[in-house]
């Protein structure tokens, strides 16, 4: 029994895969089943793999500055398949881009230097937020 299935992906032309491999191992050690589809993926191939593999979340590693173009396209491609899977972006993302990514439907952005603990926590949060809400007792 694992904590969930995560697809980690490199979209576009950026080949720097150090970060994604480290994050994949961190998540694996935290009990997730991790699927990595390799370099040079498109928003379409990522969305297709995510739906086919029925993953609980998608992690995109983006270091080349193309995140404002590509991350929204991934969200759109998932929605176009009628799915709702949280998308987490990690990499070189300046603060000034955070609002735009959130507006485009990106669930969380992990900044450079995020610790293993922060990575596991934010994936956990993204997953639980995506679950149908369970009302237990009264909440304000």
């Amino acid at each position: 029994m694992h904590a969930g299935r995560i697809l980690v992906a490199k979209v576009g032309l950026d080949g720097h895969d150090r970060g994604i491999k480290v994050v994949a191992r961190i998540l694996r050690d935290a009990g997730y089943e991790v699927i990595y589809t390799g370099l040079f993926q498109t928003p379409e191939t990522v969305a297709a793999a995510a739906v086919d593999e029925d993953v609980d979340a998608i992690g995109l590693s983006m270091l080349s500055g193309a995140h404002l173009t590509l991350a929204p396209l991934v969200v759109e491609a998932i929605r176009a398949r009628g799915a709702d899977i949280p998308v987490i972006v990690g990499g070189i993302v300046p603060d000034s881009d955070l609002d735009e990514l959130a507006a485009a439907g990106v669930t969380t952005v992990l900044r450079p230097g995020a610790t293993a603990e922060e990575i596991v926590e934010s994936v956990g949060r993204a997953l639980s937020a995506a679950q149908p809400s369970q009302v237990t007792g009264s909440t304000p």
């Binding site: 576009g12 040079f40 498109t42 080349s64 500055g65 173009t69």
Partner: peptide
């Protein structure tokens, strides 16, 4: 098409 968003960026 693969160049979308990456032209002149890095």
């Amino acid at each position: 098409p693969m160049s979308l968003g990456e032209v002149g960026r890095c």
